[in-house]
């Protein structure tokens, strides 16, 4: 795929992922992120817990990156991997 075509698809994707007016913003999402990440790290599904946060995470790469990082650290912590780090 050429760069140009990929740009077009990105633009269309961006329009498609436009969401409803009552969607959460980044600040509201961030407030829920710690509690949500704890449960997801234990195996829960985001959509079962807070679907509105899940929707925001699908649309916001920044928040999603931070959520994924937090979950990864919590999983490592729960499995004892962090204890091995000095």
């Amino acid at each position: 795929m050429s760069l140009h075509e990929s740009e077009l698809h990105k633009l269309i994707d961006c329009i498609v992922t436009s969401h409803h007016d009552d969607c959460l913003d980044c600040e509201s999402c961030a407030r829920e992120l710690d509690c949500l990440a704890e449960r997801v790290a234990m195996g829960a599904k985001i959509n079962d817990l807070l679907p509105e946060v899940a929707t925001h995470l699908c649309c916001c790469r920044d928040c999603f990156e931070e959520f994924e990082a937090l979950v990864a650290i919590l999983r490592a912590e729960n499995s004892g991997q962090l204890d091995a780090i000095g």
Binding site: D34, C35, A37, E38, E65, A69
Partner: peptide, 20 residues
Amino acid sequence: FRGDSRFTTWATKIAVRLAI
């Protein structure tokens, strides 16, 4: 801190955001 999660999870959230 609202107490909705473990304190250390909340603190880690702040650290993650800062690091990223």
